[in-house]
């Protein structure tokens, strides 16, 4: 059995103490549920000397309704989100996404902040230390070549959190705490299109809160995966849609699992003000196909993931627009 590296665990009770406990660089890591980090550490992906456990910070463990919207602490578990009546009622795509992560035992530990800051994934990265070493490591960790695109100089590992697309279509903002700073930014600002450095966070900066604005649009989330539980998304799609008398007056779509970052689909304005029919769905599907860039980072073919992302977007939009279910790839 591959054992964990030696580390100490500290349990600060305030955000300030958590940031002060961070020694900078990669020597310290923040941890909450640890459902992803423990696996990666066991695979030799990082050797921190100190883990800073965030679940003893009461301020990060609460869900509150404020100014008509909701505030969720970064250390709230996915099981708590899934069981929260107000979230289920008002932000159903978020509850669906939380329920699509792992299995019940993972969701009791895993947190919303952890899912948003999830490391990117790739078949050449998420494997044992000896398998990676035998392959000359990879661009994301200790190596110089990306085995997915050997001629390039960029890491293509895919962001695989389920919650980000749902939060993106709801227009969520996040609070980031640093040594002497506290900023609030749109969630999309957290991410960069680089599999080896996909989070715009300094090592000692901490995602502390997620804010959901009031008056959410009707929205849905769906993911494709090989196994009905546990698996990370091959593609995950959230769609928010407002329609009046069969005409689309607002559309947002966001994707995960296909690119190094989760992202809001661009150019959706072109689909506003039109009737929601088959040809409209075709245009939405094409828009998705154009903007996703799945690479060979999973066991399933990239082209399948491109098509399934498009099919899911069409299906969710059709459901939100009150159309009957259409055919297409199964999720």
């Amino acid at each position: 059995m591959e054992v964990l590296p030696r580390f100490e665990v500290v349990r600060p009770s305030t955000v300030a103490a958590a940031i002060a406990a961070h020694q900078g660089g990669q020597a310290s890591r923040f941890v909450a549920g640890g459902t992803d980090l423990m696996v990666n550490l066991r695979h030799g992906l990082g050797t921190p000397e100190r883990l800073i456990d965030l679940r003893h910070i009461p301020a990060l463990c609460t869900i509150a309704t404020e100014n008509g919207g909701m505030t969720i602490g970064a250390a709230v578990t996915l099981a708590e989100i899934l069981a929260h009546p107000e979230i289920r009622h008002r932000y159903p795509a978020l509850a669906t996404a939380a329920g699509a992560v792992g299995a019940p035992a993972h969701r009791e530990a895993a947190t919303i902040g952890g899912n948003l800051c999830l490391d990117t994934r790739c078949v050449f990265y998420n494997r044992s230390a000896w398998a990676r070493e035998a392959n000359g490591f990879c661009l994301k960790h200790r190596g110089e070549t990306c085995h997915v695109a050997p001629t390039g100089q960029r890491c293509h590992a895919a962001f695989s959190g389920d919650l980000a697309p749902a939060l993106l279509v709801y227009g969520a903002t996040i609070e980031i705490a640093g040594e002497a700073s506290l900023r609030r930014v749109p969630l999309s600002d957290l991410y960069a299109e680089d599999g080896a450095a996909h989070l715009r966070l300094a090592p000692n900066e901490l995602l502390t809160r997620i804010y959901l604005p009031p008056d959410p649009w009707p929205a849905l989330y769906a993911k494709a995966r090989a196994r009905g539980a546990i698996d990370f998304p091959l593609a995950g799609v959230a769609v928010a849609l407002r329609a009046e008398a069969g005409e689309v007056v607002g559309l947002r779509a966001a994707l995960t699992g296909t690119n190094p970052r989760p992202f809001l689909l661009a150019g959706v304005e072109a689909l506003h003000g039109e009737r929601l029919d088959e040809s409209w769905l075709d245009r939405l599907g094409k828009l998705v196909q154009k903007q996703v860039s799945p690479m060979r980072t999973t066991l399933l073919a990239a082209q399948y993931r491109r098509r399934v992302a498009s099919a899911l977007a069409r299906r969710l939009a059709a459901a939100l627009g009150g159309m009957t279910a259409e055919g297409g790839a199964a999720a």
């Binding site: 640890g34 459902t35 696996v39 019940p104 009791e108 530990a109």
Partner: peptide, 9 residues
């Protein structure tokens, strides 16, 4: 509540 002992310190 169910938890996985291989992911829990």
């Amino acid at each position: 509540k169910p938890r996985l002992a291989c992911l829990t310190r």
